[in-house]
Design a binder for these strands. Structure first.
Lengths: 293, 293
DNA sequence: AGCATAGTTCAGTGTTTCTTAACTATCAGT
DNA sequence: ACTGATAGTTAAGAAACACTGAACTATGCT
C-alpha cells in the first residue's frame, strides 16, 4: 500500500464551513452571522481562524467590506459540498431516529415537469402518499445551485457543458429543439431567419441554440429574451420574432405553434449530490422516473 | 425559494470522522488511536461524543471489542468521503502555499498499465518531469478503496456494477474478453467447454465472465483462480484449464496464447473523487490519457 | 465634521478535547 | 478456577477553543 501522504489535516470544523458559505451567500457579514445564529464577532473570529488553519488568504478588502478572493473558490466549493453532505447526513439520522420517511425535494425545469414527467410524478405521489413531496420548477442554473447547497435532493435539468463538482449525473432523455416563426412569415433562406426571441443569455439551452444557429449560417439578432416558453410562444404568435423551443413545449398547450423545423437536440439529465447519505424515498422517486435503472 | 429544511447540523468535526475511519480500518481501537495520534481514551470519548451528537448508535459489543453496526455504514461512508475531500483540500493548500506541483498518484489495473496506456504514461512523465508521479497497479476493488480514502488521485479500473458513492466516472475504453483453451483441446460444443481457470470470485470481471458463460450455455467448473493473468496464461499453456482474458493481455507478452474466441466486452473507466479540490497536475494527466475530453 | 455602517479586537466565560490514572469486562494460558 | 494480559471506559484536571458583549477602527454618506 502506498504510504499515506504526510499532509496533516488542518483541524477545520463544519461550523467554519457554514460561516464561509454564509458570507458567500449574503451581502454583509452581519446578515451571514444572523443566518448561522452567532454574533458578528464570532463569525469574524471563526473565519480568521479558518484562514490561519488553511494557511491561505481567503478574503480581501473592498472599502470597509471583506470579500472572497477569486482564489478562494476552491475552499468555498469544498465548504459548500461538506455542508451539503452534512445536511444530508443529519436528515438521514433524523429519519433513522424517528422512523420517518422525511421530505423529498425534486427540482425540474418547466418542460420536464409539465410535458415529460407529469404522469410519473402523479404515479409517485399515488404510490407514496406518506412522503412529503415537493416539486420546485426553475431554470437549470438555479436548480444546480439549490442542489449543491442541499436545498434539493434530485433535479432534472438541461445537461451542463462542464461537470458540476460534487454531483453525479444520469442521462434522462433527449428532446428536440425546433425553429418557430410567425404565421405570416415563410421559412426562406437561412440568412433571413429572425429576428429572434430566445431564452436568456447565459442559460444552457441558449448557448446550444446560438451555437447551432451560427453553424446553420443564421444571424442572431435577439430582440427579446425570457425564461418562460409561454411568453416566447406568445411573442411568436404576435409576430414579434422567431424562436427556438423544445417541440414538446411549443407544439402543445392552449395555443400551440405550427410544426417547426428541427434545429438540434438537447439532453436532459438527472443530477444528485455525489455520495450523499442514502434516502429510500429519493431512490424510489428515481426508480419511478427511470424504471430501467 | 424553498424554505431551508429545519434540520440543525450536529456540531461534528473532521477529527471525529478521522477517528471513525481509523477504527473501521484497524483491528483494535488502540491501533486506531496510534494512527491518528491520540490516546485510546481520547478516541473512545470522541466516538462516544459522535454517537451522542448523531443521536444514532454506531457500535455494538463483541466480547470486549466494540465493532461498527451494519447500520453505521452510511455514517462511515460519509466520514470517509469528508476526510478524503479534506485531505485533497489540505494538499491543494500545500500546493498554493509552496508554489509546488505536488504528487500525482495514479492507480491502474494491470492490463491498463502494461497494455493500454504505457505510451501515454511515458508521454506524461516526459512532459511533466517535475511532477512526483506514482503508479499503483492493483485489482479494481483495491483501487476503488484507495481512491475513496484519498490514497489515489485517479484510477483506471473495470467499470463497477453499481455507482460508487462520492465518485465520478468517465468511460475510458472498451476491451474484448476472449476464451482461451489449451492447445490440445478443440473448441467443441459449448456444453463441453472447461474446466476453467479464472479471475477470483468477487472481482468485477469474474462476475461478467460468469454471466456471459452461463448465457452461452457453458458450465462453470472452476478449478483455479488468480488475480494474475500471467498465472492464468501459464495454466492454460500447461493444459490445466480454459480461461477468459482480455485479448490485449492474453495474445501479447512473452508466451502469448493463440487467438481466442471473443466472449464479451468489458468497459474500463477513469474514476475520481467527486468534488475534490482541483489539482492541475491530475487534470494534465487526465488530458494526456484522454486527449478528446 | 459628524453620524452610520461594516467589520475587528479584547477580555471574560463556558465548553470541548485532550491527558494520565484508575477502572471494568473479557479472554487466553496454565 | 485462577491469574495475567488485553480492549475499551470513566474520572478528574489542564489546556485549548468558541462564543459573547463592549469597545474599537476604518470607510462611506450627508
Amino acid at each position: 500500500m502506498l504510504h499515506r501522504v504526510a499532509t496533516v489535516l488542518p483541524d477545520l470544523s463544519i461550523r467554519q464551513f457554514e460561516y464561509l458559505v454564509a458570507v458567500a451567500e449574503h451581502p454583509t457579514w452581519a446578515d451571514a452571522a444572523d443566518q448561522v445564529g452567532v454574533s458578528a464577532s464570532a463569525l469574524s473570529q471563526g473565519l480568521a481562524e479558518l484562514e490561519r488553519r488553511m494557511g491561505v488568504p481567503l478574503f480581501e478588502r473592498e472599502g470597509r467590506r471583506r470579500v472572497l478572493r477569486p482564489g478562494a473558490t476552491t475552499v468555498l466549493d469544498h465548504a459548500r459540498q461538506v455542508v451539503a453532505l452534512s445536511t444530508d447526513l443529519a436528515r438521514w439520522a433524523d429519519r433513522a431516529k424517528n422512523a420517518d420517511v422525511g421530505a423529498v425535494r425534486l427540482g425540474m425545469i418547466d418542460v420536464a415537469a409539465v410535458h415529460h414527467f407529469p404522469d410519473k410524478l402523479e404515479e409517485y405521489r399515488r404510490i407514496h402518499p406518506d412522503v412529503d413531496f415537493r416539486l420546485r420548477v426553475a431554470p437549470s442554473a438555479d436548480l444546480v445551485e439549490q442542489l449543491r447547497s442541499s436545498q434539493l435532493d434530485l433535479i432534472i435539468c438541461v445537461e451542463p457543458k462542464e461537470e458540476i463538482p460534487g454531483t453525479t449525473v444520469q442521462h434522462a432523455m433527449t428532446e428536440e429543439l425546433a425553429i418557430y416563426r410567425p404565421d405570416t412569415k415563410r421559412l426562406g433562406p437561412v440568412e433571413k431567419w429572425g429576428p429572434w426571441v430566445l431564452f436568456p443569455e447565459g442559460s444552457h439551452t441558449r448557448a446550444l441554440i446560438s451555437h447551432e444557429l451560427r453553424r446553420a449560417g443564421a444571424s442572431i439578432d435577439v430582440v427579446a429574451e425570457s425564461h418562460q416558453p409561454d411568453v416566447l410562444i406568445e411573442m411568436v404568435q404576435l409576430g414579434l420574432g422567431w424562436t427556438v423551443l423544445p417541440v414538446a413545449q411549443a407544439e402543445a398547450g392552449a395555443r400551440p405553434l405550427r410544426r417547426g423545423r428541427i434545429l438540434t437536440r438537447r439532453n436532459l439529465v438527472a443530477m444528485m449530490r455525489s455520495g450523499s447519505a442514502p434516502d429510500p424515498a429519493v431512490a424510489a422517486l428515481r426508480s419511478t422516473l427511470f424504471p430501467s435503472t
